[in-house]
Design a protein around this nucleic acid. Structure first.
Lengths: 196, 196
DNA sequence: GGCTAAACTGAACGAGCGTTCAGTTATCAG
DNA sequence: CTGATAACTGAACGCTCGTTCAGTTTAGCC
C-alpha cells in the first residue's frame, strides 16, 4: 500500500488555485491554468476535487481560515482596546501588492456570493465572526473605561467592518487616490471617535 | 433612405444587458441571454457593438452616468450641508431589491476593474467625482459653520465614500445582519462626527 | 410598385472550457 | 522481485461561448 499524500496535495492545489484566481479572476481562472501553476496535469484536479467549483469553494474556505487566523493574532497581540481595534483593521488592510492581489480574490467572491446562496452563507458566517471580534473589543474597551459607554458595540462593529472593507477595496482599485496609510488614518479616526 | 434607429436601439440593448448582468453576473451573462432579454437575435448585438466587451463597457458607462445623476440630484435637493451628505450616501444605498441587484453589478465591475486597467480608469474617474462632491459638501458646511474647521474635507471624503461602498456591499451580501437602515444610521454617525 | 439602404436573422464555425477515463508510473508491503 | 494500489497523465469528448455572414425583411423615397 502506498501512503496517502492527499492532504498535502489538496493544499498545494488550493494554493495554486488561489494564486491563479488572484491573478486572473474567478471566472477567467481555468482548470488548465491551475494545473500548470501546480505543475500537474488537469486530471489531478478531478482526482482530488469534485470539479472546478469544489476546488474554488475550498479556496474560499482556505482564505477565510487565513483571515480568521490574522484576526485572532491581532486580537491576542494587542495590549489596549484601541490597539486591538486597529490591529483588527490592519488584518484587512492591503498593505502591499501581494495583499492587494489577495483582496481582489475577495471581490471576486463577493460577486459570486451575490448570486450563489451557498457562497453567501460562507461569507456571512465569516463576517459575523469579524463583527463579533470588533464588538467584543469595543465592550472590553468600555469595561476598562477606554471607550464611551453610550456607544452601541454592535452598531459600531457593523460600521467599522464595512468601512474597512470599503477602504480596502478603494486601496486596491484607486491606489493613486487612496493609500494603505489613508485607510489606517480613516480607521483610527473611527476608533478615536469611541474614546471617552 | 430609412431613418436611423441606432441611438434608441443601443440604449435598449444596454438596458437589457444591464438587467442580464445584474441577474447572472458579468461573466455568466451571455450574448444570447442579452439578445433574448432584448427580444432580438444575437446578430443585432454585433451590428450595434464591437462585441460583448464593448457592450458591457457601455453598460458600465451607463451605470456611471446614472449614479452621477443621482448624486447631482442629491446635491441640488438638499438644504443643509448635513442633509446634503446624507443624500449623497442615500444615492449609494441599496434601498430595495432592485437597487440591491444593481449594486451586485457594481461588485462585478470592481472585480473586473481589479484586472482591467481600462475599466479601472473608468471607476477611478467616477469615484474621484463622488469624493469631490463629498469634500465640497464638507467645505460648504465648514464655511457656514455647520462642521468643524479642523476636519480635512478630502480625508473625510475618502473615508465616507469607502464606508458607503462597504456598507452598501454588506447590505447586499449580508441582508440579515446589515439593513439599509443600519447603513443610514452608520452614515449619519459619520456626518455627525463632523458637527461643530 | 420598384429601388435602396438600414435593420435584422439565425445557422454555422472555431475556440476554449470542464470533465472523463483508459492507460501509465511510482511507491509501498511481503 | 512482485503484486497491489495510490497517484498521475493527457488526449479526447461534449458543450457553450462569441463571432461571422449570406440571406431576408423592413421602411422610406421617387
Amino acid at each position: 500500500m502506498r501512503p496517502s499524500v492527499e492532504p498535502e496535495r489538496r493544499e498545494q492545489l488550493i494554493a495554486a488555485a488561489a494564486r491563479v484566481i488572484a491573478r486572473s479572476g474567478y471566472d477567467a481562472a481555468t482548470v488548465r491554468d491551475v494545473a500548470r501553476e501546480a505543475g500537474v496535469s488537469t486530471g489531478v484536479i478531478a482526482y482530488y476535487f469534485d470539479g472546478k467549483d469544489d476546488l474554488f469553494e475550498h479556496v474560499l474556505r482556505s482564505a477565510s481560515r487565513s483571515f480568521r487566523a490574522r484576526l485572532e493574532h491581532a486580537r491576542d497581540a494587542a495590549e489596549t482596546p484601541r490597539e486591538r481595534l486597529l490591529a483588527l483593521a490592519e488584518a484587512a488592510t492591503p498593505a502591499d501588492d501581494e495583499a492587494a492581489r489577495a483582496h481582489a480574490l475577495w471581490i471576486d467572491f463577493w460577486a459570486r456570493a451575490a448570486r450563489d446562496p451557498e457562497l453567501a452563507g460562507l461569507t456571512v458566517r465569516l463576517y459575523d465572526g469579524w463583527r463579533r471580534e470588533i464588538a467584543d473589543a469595543v465592550r472590553d474597551g468600555q469595561r476598562v473605561g477606554a471607550f464611551r459607554d453610550d456607544a452601541d458595540p454592535d452598531a459600531f462593529a457593523r460600521g467599522f467592518a464595512a468601512a474597512a472593507d470599503g477602504l480596502a477595496t478603494h486601496v486596491v482599485l484607486h491606489r493613486g487616490t487612496v493609500s494603505a496609510d489613508d485607510m489606517r488614518t480613516a480607521c483610527a479616526a473611527l476608533v478615536d471617535a469611541l474614546a471617552s
